[in-house]
Design a protein around this nucleic acid. Structure first.
Lengths: 205, 205
DNA sequence: GCGTTGCGAAACTTTGTCGTATCGAAAAAC
DNA sequence: GTTTTTCGATACGACAAAGTTTCGCAACGC
């Protein structure tokens, strides 16, 4: 037993790994993912260059590209916003505002792109992203709509799956087609206007 | 002047190019595009192998990958269905049924994927796809909704851009999240149910 | 100071793709 | 039959990226 206390981390000998390098690698990875069309288009050398880091430093931490991407995307998990629960309309606007903001963000978009396009080539990666990020949100939205049906705010014969698709699909498509820039111009009221169109429908009744 | 009449096509001497090889190349390209996450992941050698064709035969016809992809995607242009124009609801169901079918098809999906993801890397290609395929449909839908506003079938204060996003986004997201298989099970009435939710909205009024 | 480990840079091998060239065989016109 | 062009197959050089290794230096515990 040495003089050193048995503090559990049992710090290994030698120079410790640079926390700064690790952050830089993750950041560079996220940057380059959002600039790439696919994981294959992402190169470790480009990540190393962007991060100002040697390739050795990357391979010492992650054994391959997919592991690195998984860890990088994990840091994007922004927490779900608390839903006030006062009314479906209010909660819906809250949700849609979050979606609008994330869909307009380069990094938020790349999560969706990966989830939608890389299923064949990187099923494990996509599954982890789906479970960590997409599924909780989808479930929260589903529960919110279900609650609305029970309180009578929403139609009793509502198809929740269709309603979910209406909410998510409308935001995604609007932001995509209008472009993040234009969507940002009137962004303050966009979620509200989208929500009202979805709630009220298109018909003149 | 020879005995041969001066029939204009002026058929060049030598063995004519195989029409069958050309078809096989296009088919193989479409197959592989829908299996790839990006154009970069598409390799000429894989296309040649899949088509049972030498690389020479490809390069003799197209000088690079992008030209080949443009020509391949061009054959996917299915004509817009005629809209009866009797009612907005009927025309909307017609449109959504086409979208549902195309979104459930592997090849139909890849047009959307390219249009959404390859903008940075292949702007000319994306622009051509957009103009040839996406824009006419978007415009037809927009005109249909506008007509509905004028006839009074739709709300006078309708935001046509939002309505368009609702229609397209809902179909895309529903098919994507339900999976083409499940969406195919109840496909007969899906477009109708989606259309009615969109027209009527979610609220209980 | 010494041993150990991480650091960035660079060289290296391997693999995959591009685009070109070459080959013998096949298909057409004449 | 001769000529011309295309066919599929294959080999080639150039290049980019993956992943490994080496190197000299830096940072830590002892």
């Amino acid at each position: 037993m040495t003089t050193r206390d048995e503090t559990r981390p049992a710090r290994p000998a030698g120079r410790p790994r640079s926390e700064k390098a690790e952050k830089a690698i993750i950041e560079a990875t996220l940057d380059l993912i959002s600039e790439s069309a696919s994981i294959s288009d992402l190169s470790i050398e480009a990540i190393a260059a962007r991060a100002g880091v040697g390739k050795t430093t990357i391979y010492r931490r992650w054994s391959n590209k997919e592991d690195l991407v998984v860890d990088a995307l994990a840091v994007l998990k922004s927490p779900l916003p608390p839903l006030a629960g006062r009314s479906v309309r209010e909660d819906l606007i809250t949700c849609m505002e979050v979606m609008r903001r994330e869909a307009g963000d380069v990094r938020g978009r790349c999560v969706m792109n990966i989830a939608m396009n890389e299923n064949d080539r990187h099923p494990r990666l996509v599954e982890r992203v789906r479970q960590a990020t997409l599924q909780p949100r989808q479930e929260a939205l589903r529960a919110m709509l279900q609650r609305g049906v029970e309180t009578g705010e929403l139609r009793a014969d509502l198809d929740v799956a269709i309603a979910t698709a209406m909410v998510v699909g409308t935001v995604m498509w609007y932001v995509k087609s209008a472009g993040p820039g234009e969507a940002g111009a009137d962004s303050g009221t966009l979620a509200e206007r989208l929500a009202d169109h979805i709630l009220a429908g298109l018909s003149d009744r």
